[in-house]
């Protein structure tokens, strides 16, 4: 092919060789998504999806249906009951109870609701604010870009935990405070990523074509740029869920997060800290939940990244 600077296709890795179809001109053709999906399903991280669904999403949505215990008030008489398979355990409290006799499983389930709520809200805020700023900075450049880039760098270099402690010390812990703190810390990652993508999309020939056609800048942002950075956004959002959950848990753990007695996973780990050698289940199960969910979300995000990889898109050869 007479294209200059065409990448050598034969250096492609296995993935590309197997996944891509080439059209008559030898250029990669993207298959319809359902075909790609069905050809790739052997590598879909089912375990991760399963974990996220059954440890995080379903419990959060169906908490009131799944469990009848009260997550906030326990039965003092049943305090420190071990999980059911241990001596003294009972199936009423499958994963045991804490110092105040509250059912661990129930608190985990309601904790999932908190994690999901916090991450959904913060990521929505972060993604909307971050990608708007990123789009504007990347697209318009000039002083807008300089200002936003400076903001991004500043926010990324702030010590989050310290910042959180200061704010909480000043106005006290609450749900709103923690959402605000986390949103403030994650918008910058969205902004940085989206800005970078926008910078490269802005230089593409199809954006130049749209300008020549007389399309307004806003319309170009919405119809040409946004759809082409959407993949990045989806991947980043998935990866950020894990980050937010971890951050929320850490803040809650040090007491700067969700106020007690709300059953955040981080709060639960903190609560069982002094009992860790005797009543290990109090900290262990929430810790396990955090570990599994964060790990799964990372795997899922990585997979999504590959799945939606720009290589799969028609990108020309730049």
């Amino acid at each position: 092919m007479s294209v200059r600077n065409q990448p050598a296709r034969f250096e492609s890795d296995t993935d590309e060789a197997l996944e891509l179809n080439f059209d008559i001109q030898g250029h990669p053709v993207r298959r319809p998504w359902w075909k790609v999906w069905s050809k790739r399903n052997n590598r879909v991280p089912w375990v991760s999806i399963f974990v996220v669904l059954f440890v995080l999403v379903l419990p959060a949505l169906l908490a009131d249906v799944i469990t009848t215990h009260d997550p906030l008030r326990g039965v003092l008489a049943d305090r420190l009951t071990p999980p059911f398979w241990m001596e003294g355990g009972t199936t009423t409290y499958p994963l045991g109870t804490d110092k105040q006799g509250r059912d661990i499983l129930t608190r985990l389930i309601y904790g999932a609701r908190i994690s999901l709520t916090v991450s959904t809200i913060t990521i929505l805020i972060g993604a909307v604010v971050g990608s708007t700023l990123g789009l504007l900075a990347g697209y318009f450049g000039g002083w807008v870009d300089r200002f936003v880039s400076w903001l991004i760098d500043t926010f990324l270099s702030l010590p989050h935990v310290l910042l959180a402690l200061v704010i909480v010390a000043a106005i006290g812990p609450s749900f709103v405070t923690i959402v605000a703190i986390i949103a403030v810390t994650i918008w910058a990652s969205f902004a940085r990523q989206v800005r970078g993508e926008t910078l490269s999309v802005r230089e593409t020939e199809y954006v130049a074509r749209a300008h020549v056609a007389g399309t307004t800048s806003w319309r170009i942002l919405l119809r040409h740029v946004l759809p082409n950075v959407a993949n990045t956004l989806i991947v980043l959002a998935t990866l950020q869920v894990g980050v937010v959950i971890l951050e929320e848990s850490s803040l809650s753990f040090i007491g700067a997060g969700i106020p007690r007695p709300n059953p955040s996973w981080g709060v639960m780990v903190a609560d069982g800290r002094d009992q860790i050698l005797i009543s290990w289940w109090i900290s262990f199960f929430p810790g396990l939940c955090i570990l599994l969910v964060v790990l799964s979300l990372n795997l899922l995000g990585d997979w999504l990244r590959d799945f939606l990889d720009p290589k799969m898109r028609q990108r020309g050869r730049s």
């Binding site: 130049a208 759809p227 020309g316 730049s318």
Partner: peptide
């Protein structure tokens, strides 16, 4: 109006 060099890059992939 204009036509650009690279037919693989000059049409929005999502339109």
């Amino acid at each position: 109006q204009a036509v650009f060099q690279d037919p693989w890059a000059s049409l929005s992939p999502r339109m």
